[in-house]
Design a protein around this nucleic acid. Structure first.
Lengths: 155, 155
DNA sequence: GTTTCTGCAAATCATTTGCACCTGA
DNA sequence: TCAGGTGCAAATGATTTGCAGAAAC
């Protein structure tokens, strides 16, 4: 299993270009605009796998275009979240964290020592969900779950 | 099961007075001082069950003594955490959150709708720990686990 | 021509830090 | 005495907001 998110280098997602291409139309369907700034953020997101903080995204956008304004990025993230294109949760440090194109609901594992992060697989997640569902009828929102601990390598 | 923390009214913990009384000595053993400000925070903590944010504690201290200074509270919390008297994690909103006198390592459940919070029981926690341990050798730090979802009542 | 954005600057807000003065042991 | 603490004020740093002008459709 590969770590995801900031500790690991981002990988391109050319296989998802079709999905990203539809963003423009999805915006328009709702009477929203397809602006250069939004295009830029979507371009950055399309190169991103796993999860990133808002500040990360601001920085990556700024690498492409130094004139990027943070508030625009955050506002665009809000819009993209409404479209279901990103989703936000919280990292182990309590920092806001966005994850991209949630193919499936998943939580995150975060190693306290090396800082690497992994996605919790569907099976692992199912076990957690089932436990709390059975014990007290609690409906877990897996996409907000972040579990901290130490990974195999660091133990 | 009763909700814990801010959404529920705090209950006194007179049964733990002995444990709180030892704080003074525990500080002195390390060459640290027992000051009025620390006494005040410990008094507030002894009236607290479950988890609270740092800002909450500052406010509660200020109710007792309006001259309370936030930085002193935070610094004292750091010290108390080193003594193992409180422990900090993060709430579903990413806010710093302290929990008090962790009798046992436990995580938290947080209802997205009503905002109530519960402790994850030892058995439930064990199930989660075991799942991730078996699947990938990951050592979960239960005290940092906060799971968001919807409680039975809100579904 | 509207309605939605953007840029900018200023505001939040919990938490942290630097530093000179105070105080508990 | 003197290391450890406190008060105060200013710094942080991510995220948000108000608003006037700019751009998309």
């Amino acid at each position: 299993m590969q770590p995801v998110g900031s500790p690991a280098p981002s990988e391109s997602r050319s296989d998802d270009l079709a999905a990203w291409g539809s963003v423009r139309d999805r915006l328009r369907e709702r009477g929203l605009r397809w602006t250069p700034q939004r295009r830029a953020l979507v371009a950055v997101l399309s190169q991103t796998r796993g999860h990133v903080t808002g500040a990360d995204l601001v920085e990556r956008c700024r690498e492409q275009d130094p004139s990027t304004i943070p508030s625009t990025v955050y506002r665009t993230l809000d819009v993209l979240e409404e479209l279901g294109i990103v989703r936000h949760g919280h990292g182990p440090d309590g920092r806001e964290e966005y994850h991209v194109l949630p193919d499936a609901e998943h939580g995150h594992l975060h190693c306290r020592d090396c800082g690497a992060a992994w996605e919790i697989t569907a099976e692992e997640g199912a076990s957690i969900v089932a436990t709390l569902e059975a014990a007290r009828g609690f409906a877990v929102d897996l996409s907000h779950v972040t579990i901290v601990g130490r990974c195999r390598a660091c133990r």
